[in-house]
């Protein structure tokens, strides 16, 4: 038994085998974007975009409920790709920016709203529809995204999965917000946040399970 010899053999053998297909995050991003577009497009087609979008868009909180998730999605997908390559430096704090802005909106709203209507406003009318829509619409892009990232080499699979979950969940939320007519930060920060959290958790579990190599 000569272990050195077999290692040399292995090197020869590996050198003789063809190089694996390139791992291109651009392709993954394109795939994710296409799937998100299809999911949201179908959703808008069936349930419609809010009819007063043009006038509502003038309100800062209406913009915020699309723009903050969008920002979160872009940051998270960037980090998910970065964490799919060994040796990169992963800086997570940018994820906190939209979250803090959301919390700021909530606190601001606290000051304005009457004591009695606080709970009613936070619970809203469509909380369940919101949670269900966002999680269901996220399922396919998340699943396919995990499969595509298997070609990468995540050295922290659960983290990469969670980041992908945040990205997909937030991306779907940004689109869902164009349908949703509940404009109180008390509602959307709570429920959108919860929905994105659920998708992120699923992403973490899937990553832990399927992004190992």
């Amino acid at each position: 038994m000569t272990p050195k010899q077999t290692t040399a053999d292995l090197i020869r053998q590996l050198a003789a085998s063809p190089a694996p297909r390139p791992f291109r995050t651009g392709v993954v991003a394109g795939g994710l974007l296409a799937l998100l577009g299809i999911s949201l497009g179908a959703f808008w087609l069936v349930f419609g975009i809010r009819t007063d979008l043009a006038s509502a868009w003038l309100l800062m909180q209406v913009q915020a409920k699309t723009v903050l998730p969008l920002f979160l999605a872009i940051t998270a997908v960037w980090l998910a790709f970065g964490s799919s390559r060994p040796g990169g430096r992963i800086v997570l704090w940018p994820l906190a920016v939209p979250l803090l802005l959301g919390v700021f909106l909530v606190i601001q709203r606290f000051g304005q709203v009457a004591e009695g209507s606080l709970q009613a406003e936070a619970l809203g009318q469509t909380a369940f529809a919101c949670l269900a829509s966002i999680t269901v619409l996220s399922a396919t892009p998340l699943g396919v995204g995990i499969v595509m990232l298997r070609r990468g080499a995540a050295i922290r699979p659960a983290l990469t999965g969670t980041l992908l979950g945040i990205a997909v969940g937030a991306g779907v939320t940004a689109g869902y917000a164009l349908h949703c007519t509940e404009d109180s930060p008390l509602f959307f920060v709570l429920w959108y946040g919860l929905a994105i959290g659920i998708v992120a958790g699923c992403g973490g579990l899937l990553g832990h399970r399927y992004l190992r190599w």
Partner: peptide
């Protein structure tokens, strides 16, 4: 060594190779 082969395309050419290699 086998993992280096399978995952070698996750190294970006503009990134230093050593941190990549050590992390992997």
């Amino acid at each position: 060594l086998l993992a280096i082969h399978l995952k070698r395309q996750t190294w970006r050419r503009d990134a230093p190779v050593r941190p990549w290699l050590y992390a992997l």
